[in-house]
Design a protein around this nucleic acid. Structure first.
Lengths: 152, 152
DNA sequence: TCCTAATTGATATCAAGTATCAATAAATTG
DNA sequence: CAATTTATTGATACTTGATATCAATTAGGA
């Protein structure tokens, strides 16, 4: 058992698949490393376009596995296809820039505390929650200050 | 101007359309009264099935108008088609029963207060937010207590 | 009533995503 | 390491949800 065979912890996504008893294949590695390399949230179609060597069905299947494993968050958008983002923290929420679509993760204890206070008011058992904050991100703000009305 | 011509305030949805300069047609009335009569949230396809006399395109168009007018909320679901629910209060959130799909509206000042405290922490300008609480509603709880494991 | 612009709805089309299934690749076993 | 078994792949067809087109129809003002 040489120390070299220890898998680096950064390889999160492919591990999440192996933990579920799924085989480590080149297609799945291509998908997971692409997700880990690229920055930020993405749609399934974007991934397909970025990885023409991997079949569409496989891309969709791999995404589904990752969501089932809790390694990816599925974010249904008000219009168009859902976005996916890597789940870095156990429980968290998202900010979504309504101008450029950038998604960031955040967590705040107050939100969780509010949930607990709502339990009394809500008729039924709370089993989960979801919260998205729509923002204009600092990049987009800077751009509109700089460029004037050019911000597409 | 006889008093009789005053429109009852309950006819909310068709009014919302007229307020936007849209004509009051029989197709639109059929859609809005169906929405007002039926209870709870619905999908576009459900409406189409309930109103075979109205064309699909018209159903979808009318829904879109109502959402644009702020009279309907569009709720993207984690899977499948979005649901729509009548917006009774200006600003509110939703509880969604993950067993039967029932949607209820709620509002709570604490949630809004939390939003204000998050403004300091978030990089960018907050332009809105969305929050859904997933519950097992009291009906479903009662049913599973009564029927045992029959809960579908 | 007449006129014009808005509306309708059958149809075609688009987009996102899933099912099928023969060919292929991974793991296992002898 | 070869043989065997089983999971996986991906081209294709299909499903579903929703929108575009456009001739026929209708609402509502003049």
């Amino acid at each position: 058992m040489p120390a070299q065979t220890i898998v680096p912890v950064e390889a999160n996504l492919i591990n999440a698949l192996e933990d579920r008893g799924l085989r480590k294949t080149s297609a799945r590695s291509a998908v997971t490393t692409r997700i880990e390399t690229a920055s930020g949230a993405f749609t399934a179609e974007q991934l397909c376009r970025d990885l023409p060597e991997v079949g569409r069905a496989t891309v969709y299947r791999t995404i589904r596995h990752l969501v089932d494993a809790g390694a990816l968050c599925k974010l249904p958008m008000l219009d168009g296809a859902p976005k996916y983002s890597v789940a870095r923290n156990e429980h968290h929420h998202h900010t979504i820039c309504s101008r450029c679509g950038a998604v960031e993760e955040f967590r705040h204890s107050t939100v969780e505390r509010v949930m607990r206070s709502l339990e009394k008011e809500i008729d039924g058992d709370i089993v989960g929650h979801r919260m998205e904050i729509f923002i204009t991100c600092s990049n987009c703000l800077a751009e509109s200050n700089r460029g004037g009305s050019s911000g597409r």
